[in-house]
Design a protein around this nucleic acid. Sequence first.
RNA 1: GGGGCGGUGGCGGAAUAGGCAGACGCAAAGGACUUAAAAUCCUUCGAUGGUGACAUUGUGUGGGUUCGACCCCCACCCGCCCUACCA
Length: 829
Amino acid sequence: MAGIFYLKGAIMFDPTAIPMYKPEEIEPKWQARWEHDKLYQPWNDPDKTKFYALTMLPYTSGDLHIGHWYAMAPSDARARFKRMQGYNVFFPMGFDAFGLPAENAAIKNNTHPKTWTYNNVERMRAQLKTMGNSFDWRSEIVTADPKYYRWTQWWFEQFYKHDLAYQKFAPVDFCPSCNTTLAREQVKGEERLCERCGTPVIKKNLKQWFFRASNYSEELLRFDGIDWPEVIRTLQTKWIGKSEGASIIFHTEAEDALEVFTTRPDTLWGATFMVLSPEHPLVDKLTTEAQAEMVQAYRQQAARQSDIQREALDREKTGVFTGSYAVNPASGQHIPIWIADYVLMTYGTGAIMAVPAHDKRDFDFARKFNLPITVVIQPDGLESINAAALTEAVEAHGMMVNSGPLTGTPGNLSFEKAVEFAEANGFGHRSVNYRFHDWLISRQRYWGAPIPVVYCPHCGTVLVPDEQLPVELPDDIEWTQKGDNPLVIHPTWKHTTCPNCGGPAERETDTMDTFMCSSWYHLRYLSPDYETYPFDPEQAKFWLPVDTYTGGSEHATMHLIYTRFFHKAARDCGILEGDEPMLQLRNQGMVLGEDGEKMSKSRGNVVNPDDLVQKYGADTVRAYLIFFSRWDQGGPWSYSGIEGNARWLRRVWSMFLEPETTHVDADVLKALRRKTHQTLRSLSYDYENFEFNTIVSGLMELLNMMARAKAAGAYGTPEWNECVDIYLRMLAPVCPHIAEELWERLGKPYSIHNQAWPKLDEEAAKDEEITLVVQVNGKLRDRMIVSPEISKEEMQAAALSSDAVRGELAGREPKKIIVVPGKLVNVVV
RNA sequence: GGGGCGGUGGCGGAAUAGGCAGACGCAAAGGACUUAAAAUCCUUCGAUGGUGACAUUGUGUGGGUUCGACCCCCACCCGCCCUACCA
């Protein structure tokens, strides 16, 4: 109370005092004005170079968290910098609004996914606006809006028409008690129990929709012409998982073909058994009566395990003999066929030839089940190996032994020769295998864009005609105890007429993966209300591709690969031009809790941006986030750290507004100008190169210089005024509100955000003197203040005249003298 | 097991081309202002030795290349993230 009285008193009794910095007043004021004046709405200005700055749109989870701020504030600062540089910048924002959490929340809170989602959109939009970003809200999209998903459905139809979408059976997680499919997130724990009823989940084959993403595997491995972080490129490359090898066709004793993929055709003669994935389609046929019971039991158990569990390396191998045999096409040997869960149906052909002598996994398996081991490779420099004495598989390449006609083939030729042999004998060929699969887009969920397909008993699969799009989600839905998809149990929704023959037909009840929605949102931003096409072609021609895309690297193998596929597919449908959707990608790191751990409710280390805005204002929060660490690295939050940025902005405020006059010293003014332009030079570099933290520290440094200059009477001089002008422009992208407010208070024309980036005066930025570093044998011995124009000879002479150097030399002759112009002299003795 | 990123004061971090390590900020200590507190301002602040200018030492560890290494090379240790039986 006393403090407040004192404060009021100060204002009442000291009319000359400048007003306090009150972000809570100036920030909403400017946000409203900018919006009213449509300050951030570019539109095809042909005189300017376009710049499409895009940051990943948030999922409508309910609250904007500090991570969103961390992703968006620096992206906004850079977009603003680009605007000031004269680019025509488009920086849109929207909401990723479909998805499972909405359904779960709706069921839990007894509300509707639409209500939940749109409430969150409202809330998050308001929160976003407190950041003061330069978003063009005209372009906002909500992916759950029928206006939007009408075009998501349109895209599906284009892909279908161009044979890039197809249907096939694929295994999904299924709860036999609830009688419904589950999303991966709904399967809980190691035991893989249904989230709702606790029943063990099984894998079930259902007919589902796919996009032919694997057609693009090879192209997706190329990153020509795009500037994406190496980490992302590596992750995508590994995810696509190209491996070169051979396809080998084995035959069972019953003459069924059994194709395998191997990267080691040279070990073919050592294949002493085969292993099929438990889900392999031939298992039933191969299983003999005597083995039927064991095989069945094993398959059931395997069906319940997640891939993760099955793939755990340290898990002991398990498996069951089918009772059948195959013939090794090279050796003619009859070899047993087993099933084991270490062979995955999702990779290769779901079957392998097992070469225990030369593959670790096969070796473990063979040892456990006493299967024969044959050595067929003798690596150079290794003692002659024999199967009985092996303690581990020998995976190194080497000379082929024990391999029929190819015995003696050296290691460097073995791959080629083995493939040639297989080709010549008609049982195999060279082949390339990818880990990357076609994109399964079917989701047995309500809250997604319905797949616009009708199944007609006469006409088969029929696309919903364009004029009938969107296929809208019904609002009147019910949730059953069992958790069925409301679209399936809805009394009327799925019943429709065939667009082809007019007879009764049923709608597809699956909806699309939400990554479908986010694969093309950057196109819809360009013309969110355009009614005859997913985007206005003229706008697309002007704005595409995206120049800078920012967001989290956790999307490397999902969104960021899907959106690249989507673009290429659209290109091949003749809809888009160019090979890549986003030219430059940059990823931010993660803000951790004060304890250095990932933020989580259970840890109690979550930082709430709304509270921070209330306490410090958005500019301070933005400045702190930009300042505290390298953007691509992230790091721990600090509540005391942000105080430093709050202090800085208060200093800026009073520095610029509090007048002060005394005598002026010309040297001080020159130094101020020098520092001003030096800062301008380094900050221009930092903004361009996403080195945000040094932007703020550079501004702090310049402010410190200004304080000294002000104390020496620089306030109000032309040099001072120039400094203030440049300072505010450099500050504007990071702290747009305070920069605008000070700009106005200093009588400059609205708006600072329409001002040009300052021009660098190279001459002013030049150092008047430099510190010459003098070393003897690489150790610092002296420093001298010299002119920057000093010649190499003069530098050397100056260094040798140094007392410290002379003392160190003690009469000895220098062996060598290294002179680095403008920097240092190193005298070697 | 594989891949990636990182390790610099009490803390977060700078060092843009191999050339003054520790910019900037936080915390801490001392001081000024104030009845007092907050705010603000000033000073100090890697370690060791010295009253001091200064000297020695110092960027995870060990080695190497170089006139000179936080930076390049080799080996190792630690932390975090991702990935995981990929045939």
